[in-house]
Design a protein around this nucleic acid. Structure first.
Length: 424
RNA sequence: GCGGGUGUUGCCAAGUGGUUAAGGCCCCGGAUUGUGAUUCCGGUAUUCGUGGGUUCAAUUCCCAUCACCCGCCCCA
């Protein structure tokens, strides 16, 4: 048959590694975002919104030319004579805005947060999408250990508020670039004789970024690090004296705040801009992609991107991963569900109640009141307001408390008065 | 980019080379035209991810493709 005229149109699917978020799921996202936003705003952080795409050059210069993110995971496209890239992470754009908008002239420290989609071209997997969302914080202009401790404290408190126990905070000090350069040389000298015993990727990393060898998951590679000479070298205080002092103070504050952590001297990060404090927060309920939150200090990035020398520290957390951990949380309940066949009057009442700060839904069908009550129950409404013909003309409403089944009569005016918010 | 697994309705699923593709949840209608969470009755897949092949006949067999899942890798 050559006829294709009555063949059904092929539905268009969403691009691989992307998601539609709706109904209960989006309510959960809102709850998590609201909790995070409230916590951060209560600590003096303010939101920053930056473009979804930036100059490709920005990411090359900040994230690092040798990283996997820049090498093989960026969505880059050319327009006119410029190369643009969908942001693969949030810090670079925030730092660019910090410099471009002259935010270094704001009172220090400047504390910012963002919540935004990110894009990386990777093979999708549980907890790893091509479009994913990060919530992040950045503190500019504070070099004290208190800044490191505060951002960690806020991350841990956020997880606590969301009811997530059993998260593990790991922390490490990776020193400044000079000591890291020295460490790198000594490390390479030490490893070179046995380099051929490492896995292929480690052998590549030996030349590009030897630090990444340290967190290789291959057990054969890890065995080399338990050999006495190597182990002693790794555990040695190879970082600068200043960064050691800083690190000690950060952990002292964490102890004081009773925030549990594990030191992990093999913890390194995949982005080039970090120095001194680095940390990760992981969960055992996430499968292979178990990092919920990661971050650290990046004291030279602002200057490296052309701004005035400004110390900074921050983290980012993966919203999809976080939301998947919070899945059991109760959804916010509805205050009133209006059961009615008098829609004009019901819409007006709902409007007035909402102005008093109540959450209200009006039944928009013309179904029997019994069906409407059943819907009110499904919406987990606290109470149903029955507004039929009799109530509309008398102004006396029937209020039914759905948990007890008890029903009272109340005038429209009294109802509005009783839920009036206190004067500011 | 590499290896392994899966794909039946909004969701969870059973099933077979051959008349109308189980069942449960959700949704919708009714019993009950103004009072819910229980109960009872009824309804909802021209179709088995998509495309092609083998066959008299394909959801079932074969190939390709797409999507998802689990690893590698990477990171939030």
């Amino acid at each position: 048959m050559t006829s294709t005229t009555n063949r059904r149109q092929q539905p268009i699917q969403r691009p691989k590694g992307t998601q539609d978020i709706f109904l209960d799921k989006v309510a959960l996202w809102h709850a998590v975002e609201r909790t995070a936003t409230q916590l951060l705003e209560s600590a003096g952080y303010s939101e920053i919104r930056t473009p979804v795409f930036e100059s490709t050059e920005l990411f090359k210069r900040s994230v690092g030319e040798d990283t996997d993110i820049v090498n093989k995971e960026m969505y880059t496209f050319e327009k006119g004579d410029r190369s643009l890239t969908l942001r693969p992470e949030g810090t670079a754009g925030v730092v660019r805005a910090f410099i471009e908008q002259g935010l270094h002239r704001q009172p220090k420290p400047l504390k910012l947060f963002y919540s935004a989609p990110m894009f990386r071209y990777e093979r999708p997997q549980a907890g790893r999408q091509r479009q994913f969302h990060q919530f992040g914080v950045e503190v500019f202009g504070a070099d004290s250990p208190a800044a490191d401790a505060e951002v960690i404290q806020l991350a841990m408190r956020l997880f606590e508020r969301l009811g997530l126990p059993n998260l593990v905070l790991e922390i490490n000090n990776i020193g400044d670039s000079a000591s890291r350069q020295q460490f790198r040389e000594s490390f390479c000298q030490l490893i070179e004789p046995v380099l051929l015993e490492f896995c292929d990727t480690c052998q590549t990393r030996f030349h590009t970024n030897p630090f990444r060898m340290l967190d290789c998951k291959n057990s054969a590679c890890q065995e080399h690090y338990s050999e006495p000479t190597v182990a002693r070298f790794l555990a040695s205080e190879w970082t600068s004296e200043a960064s050691q002092k800083h690190y000690t103070q950060v952990t002292t504050i964490l102890d004081y705040l009773k925030i549990p952590y594990q030191r992990n001297h093999r913890l390194v990060r995949g982005l080039d801009y970090y120095n001194a404090t680095v940390f990760e927060i992981t969960s055992t309920h996430l499968g292979a992609q178990n990092t919920v939150c990661g971050g650290g200090r990046y004291d030279s990035l602002v200057e490296q991107l052309g701004g005035p020398s400004t110390p900074a520290v921050g983290w980012a957390l993966g919203m999809e991963r976080l939301v998947s951990l919070v899945e059991d949380c109760a959804l916010p309940a509805l205050d009133y569900y209006i059961v009615t066949d008098q829609h004009a009057s019901a819409l007006a009442l709902a409007d007035q109640l909402r102005q008093q700060g109540k959450s209200v839904e009006v039944d928009l069908t013309a179904r029997a009141f019994g069906k409407q009550l059943a819907t009110a129950n499904k919406r987990h409404a606290h109470s149903a307001i029955i507004l039929g013909e009799a109530e509309a003309s008398s102004g006396q409403l029937q209020i039914k408390f759905l948990s007890s089944g008890q029903q009272i009569e109340q005038s429209r005016d009294d109802l509005l008065k009783s839920c009036k918010l206190p004067e500011a």
